[in-house]
Amino acid sequence: MIKNKRVIGEIAVVALIFLGVAGGALQQIATSFAAQNASSGGPLKNAAMFPQLLIAILVVLGCVQIGMSIRTHRLSNGPATGETRPDARSESAVPGEPPDPAEPRAVLHRKAIICLVIFAAYLGGVGILGYPVATFTMLFAMFFVLGTSPLVASIVAFLAMVTVGIVFGMLLNVVLPIGIIGISFPS
């Protein structure tokens, strides 16, 4: 069952990401490129030549990869094939560490998703609320979700917001988001 899920996931990744991008690009070449008169001709005018080559590579390799995923799945009867490729594993978070005994996977998974939502909300809100308010709120909320007490969370969030604001806004002359209600970080 777990193995089946894995194979479906493998195929979905290839189909959605690689073949999806290839398909989208092909559609753009047929419409937008053609409308700009840039999908044919010599090297000066043909902007589609190189992308077309890459689309072909993506499609061919994508199909090979799908075929390989299915074959590995059929051939395997040992435990969890494909989950432990030594090389690719190396890029993952903590090599060789056993799962955290204190918190079950499901809880951690939920926390990760909540953090992701907070982060997305921050990116959406920073242009409206401005850097100080949005950053403080994001940091406070995330500290809290990850298990810090509200008091500590608010103090650390405030200090981090001010410190980073000073370093970037003043020393590095970056104009931090001001927000439409106009609360700015002074510079």
């Binding site: 953090c115 982060f119 921050y122 990116l123 920073v126 950053t135 994001m138 940091l139 995330m142 500290f143 990850l146 298990g147 810090t148 650390v156 981090a160 917001m161 980073v164 970037f168 590095l172 970056v174 931090l176 988001p177």
Partner: peptide, 18 residues
């Protein structure tokens, strides 16, 4: 980690915005 993760995310945002 409960401190490090949000702080790193914060730095990434400001750094990329810069």
């Amino acid at each position: 980690k409960k401190f490090l993760i949000p702080l790193v995310l914060h730095l990434c945002v400001v750094g990329v915005f810069a």
